[in-house]
């Protein structure tokens, strides 16, 4: 029994760690500028956690086998060892707090970055169960919206007020978002019914879209191609298929796309 249990813990720890190292299942391929720092922090923490995990399971297994009861021998009698206790308390405290500080630096750099003035701004509004994108158009200004004007049947998903001159050139799409590569993108996240969460795995972007709030996210895509926008916060029955497409294209393609969309509207 003791040896079997020891083997079980060792094998479990080995297989777990091995599958991580082999990267059989791994992070989606990175496609954003800030994502590298996030990945590095994730891997660093994963390695440290993996070491702690492996050592603890190995020790547990070893102790189980080594200190199995042998006949009528008596166990050793010891209560405490202040020196050892202080050592591991201090060591774990340094490890955890150090990790926390390092993690906060990565976080601050990502979340506190403001979109520069020349950034492309897209307003993304979640609804059950679709993503509504809006570009300000030539005037660079979003038109006025009013919830009272929302009418899904007429495809006025955002309640855009046609009486507002700034509204005329707004470009609206649903479940489709195009952005230029290697240019900072500022996304303003809104929700019109319940809380959603804007998640693009390859960009390492995930942010809740909360009704009544306009939350800003800034990122720069570094690879062209098509990606998926998923909802990462339970929003109702069809949460699992609230899917948007994200097209990352060259600057020229993007400008053309925007112009075509504006013309088509």
């Amino acid at each position: 029994m003791p040896l079997a249990l020891a083997f079980f813990f060792w094998a479990m720890a080995l297989i777990t760690v091995a599958l991580f190292i082999a990267r059989v299942w791994w992070l989606p391929e990175l496609a954003s500028a800030h994502g590298g720092a996030i990945d590095d922090q994730l891997v660093l923490t994963l390695v440290l956690a993996g070491i702690v995990f492996f050592l603890a399971q190995a020790a547990l297994g070893y102790f189980i086998w080594r200190f199995r009861a042998r006949g009528s021998e008596r166990a050793s009698y010891w209560h405490e060892n202040p020196k050892m206790e202080v050592t591991w308390t201090v060591a774990t405290a340094i490890l955890f707090i150090g990790l926390g500080i390092q993690g906060n630096r990565v976080w601050a750099k990502y979340i506190l970055t403001q979109a520069p003035p020349d950034a492309v701004t897209v307003e993304v509004t979640g609804q059950q169960f679709a993503w509504n994108m809006r570009y300000a158009g030539a005037d660079g200004k979003f038109g006025r919206t009013d919830p009272k004007l929302i009418n899904d049947a007429n495809a006025n998903f955002l309640g855009l007020d046609e009486a507002d001159p700034a509204a005329h050139d707004d470009v609206l799409t649903q479940n489709l978002m195009a952005i230029p590569v290697n240019r900072p993108i500022g996304v303003i996240l809104r929700a019109k019914d319940v809380t959603h969460s804007f998640y693009v795995p390859q960009l390492r972007v995930k942010q809740d879209a909360v009704p009544g709030m306009g939350i800003r996210v800034t990122f720069t895509a570094t690879k062209t191609g098509e990606f998926e926008i998923a909802c990462a916060e339970l929003c109702g029955m069809q949460h699992y298929k609230m899917r948007g497409r994200l097209l990352v294209m060259s600057d020229a393609d993007y400008e053309k796309w925007l112009k075509d969309r504006a013309a088509a509207q």
Binding site: L5, F9, M12, T16, L27, A37, I38, D39, Q41, L42, T45, L46, L48, A49, G50, V52, F53, A56, Q57, L60, I64, F96, L99, G100, G103, N104, V106, W107, Y110, I111, S197, P201, R204, V205, K206, A232, E233
Partner: peptide, 30 residues
């Protein structure tokens, strides 16, 4: 009880990742 210790370790170390907002960008709600 020994199983508890093993599980407590296995479930505990992943807290190191989830405690960091930067890492949560990738892992939150997964």
């Amino acid at each position: 009880a020994l199983g508890f210790v093993s599980l407590f370790v296995s479930g505990g170390v992943t807290g190191m990742l989830l405690a960091q907002p930067a890492v949560d960008v990738a892992l939150h709600d997964t």
